[in-house]
Design a protein around this nucleic acid. Structure first.
Lengths: 152, 152
DNA sequence: ACTCCTTTTCACAGATTTGTGAAATCTCTG
DNA sequence: CAGAGATTTCACAAATCTGTGAAAAGGAGT
């Protein structure tokens, strides 16, 4: 277990998540959870490991729980919260999250309506929208196929 | 052709692209191109339509061309550049762009190596990496399937 | 080579985001 | 319900991001 390499992973991985649009602190905390042996840490452990204030962790927690990437768990008779990458693999959660796509699709519907009937721009936009709708619908099936391919 | 609604589309659509990680100005310019009848505009047209400076457009152009979402076109005997959402549907370009995933996969490989052999964290990380590799490999096939489903 | 226009670069100002410390709030436990 | 510790909130400072204006660089036609 190479601690330096693990720390490097957290920072590097978090950076690529950040580039993909996730908040910086949330990305780092998420990285820390991924390398935690049981995928669970307390706020304090996160704060210590990343050398940040409890306040920063609190912000990350609220982001990550809202986006359902982690869940808050408290054992009965425990006084501290544990945060955990859920039982369901987090990337499935990530893939299932399509609100961003949905928003785009909604806008494209409105956009298409505002364009001249049959114009190239309208045709292009409708086609694009159909693709995203297809993609959204396919997502669960893609995950299924992956599960199958694993068994083979 | 409802100009106000078109403008609203540009802003709304651009916002959802921005939330997905794209630069603000680039998102707006991209939106403007999407509703342009032939999918092509000059820098000046973009600047006028979005009410921004040429410098801002220049920045957006450099982002969008780097990410291959638009291409620069200049007709022989013309003095100005036209920017165009490419011939290939832009969302196919978008889906084919996997560098972000590749970066994550690379980091996960390193992360796995740094974790104790056979530890839950390592198992989890390897599985995650395999999923993304699968996803990346599947992408072209997903697009193919969409094309087929369109013919039906 | 010159001129005109387009495009890029750069320093800067304004806006936004990020993380901190301190205070407030919450929640178990006794 | 009081105490102890955990968590959240808030105002603020530092860092980052955005877009501007002005100047520089680039290119096509004369």
């Amino acid at each position: 277990m190479d601690d330096d390499a693990v720390a490097a992973f957290i920072e590097g991985f978090a950076l690529s998540l950040t580039e993909a649009g996730m908040q910086r602190m949330a990305s780092r905390m998420f990285g820390a959870l991924l390398v935690a042996d049981d995928g669970r840490l307390t706020a304090k452990e996160v704060a210590d490991q990343l050398k940040v204030s409890p306040a920063a962790v609190s912000g990350a927690v609220s982001y990550l729980t809202q986006t359902k990437l982690i869940t808050r768990v408290r054992e009965p008779g425990d006084r501290v919260d544990h945060y955990s990458v859920g039982e369901q693999p987090w990337f499935e959660t990530l893939m299932a999250r399509t609100d961003s796509i949905e928003k785009m699709v909604d806008w494209m519907r409105k956009g298409s309506a505002a364009l001249p009937q049959g114009s190239p721009a309208q045709v292009r936009m409708d086609e694009t929208r159909e693709f995203f709708e297809y993609l959204q619908a396919e997502m669960p099936r893609i995950i299924d196929r992956w599960r199958e391919s694993k068994h083979a």
